[in-house]
């Protein structure tokens, strides 16, 4: 079983590198956000599989938190693109974009 965990871990590692290449190449900013979001999902999976590989399933708690923070991070970066701020205050010149 350990063998299969390590094979899965290697596949996730290669995918991480491919996603990283897209984050570096990406012509638009949205390509980069998409790639970083995928890297987050892959990191969650890697943490889970590594917990089983090492025989320490407590790692799953970390993966749970990582999944939440990954989502909040993506949404806040997108909001920052749109509004130029993370708080409730929206600069007047941006207000017509917000609908």
């Amino acid at each position: 079983m350990i063998l299969w965990f390590s094979i899965t871990l290697m596949a996730i590692g290669v995918s991480l590198l491919l996603a990283l290449a897209r984050a570096a190449l990406g012509p638009t900013a949205f390509d980069r956000v998409l790639a970083v979001n995928s890297i987050g999902s892959l990191a969650v999976l890697a943490i889970c599989v590594y917990g089983f590989f090492d025989g320490r399933p407590e790692f799953l708690d970390i993966a749970l938190l990582y999944a939440l923070i990954n989502f909040i991070g993506t949404i806040s970066v997108l909001k920052y693109f749109r509004a130029g701020t993370l708080g409730d205050h929206v600069p007047p010149e941006k207000q017509q974009d917000m609908q």
């Binding site: 899965t8 996730i12 995918s15 991480l16 491919l18 996603a19 897209r22 790639a35 995928s38 892959l42």
Partner: peptide
Amino acid sequence: ALGVLFGALGLL
């Protein structure tokens, strides 16, 4: 693992 690899390949 194959699905993850193909997904990343598609991303590229």
